[in-house]
Amino acid sequence: MSDHAALGVFLILTLVFPVAAMAAAWLFRVKSAPTREKLLPYECGVDPKGSGWMRFRVNYFLYALVFLVFDIETIFLYPWAVKFQSLGLFAFVEMIVFIAILALGLWYAWKEGALQWY
């Protein structure tokens, strides 16, 4: 079996695990008919006001954007790191250019205040 096929089988097997756990819990657990109050979202005992799906700060979004840029750069860096030793000086110069670009991006995000948590 190839590695990827084995991983696929592993994934399918793993899908069984939580289902089996939930089935076991279903067998053993107390079946109850909860009241309306019991099914309210927990808010320290007080009836919740409004929906839990509220708006949140734009900060989170800015971080997510910066993360996206860096994460994609990571994907490019990994193959480069694997081949670093066999590519020699070319890879070395390439690395300095690439990391300079990364550092520039980080500096720009920093300067624009995207990394500031309010």
Binding site: A25, W26, R29, V30, P34, L40, P41
Partner: peptide, 11 residues
């Protein structure tokens, strides 16, 4: 934990 009731809030 196995024997605890399963509560899924209504909303």
């Amino acid at each position: 934990l196995l024997t605890k009731e399963d509560i899924i809030p209504s909303q």
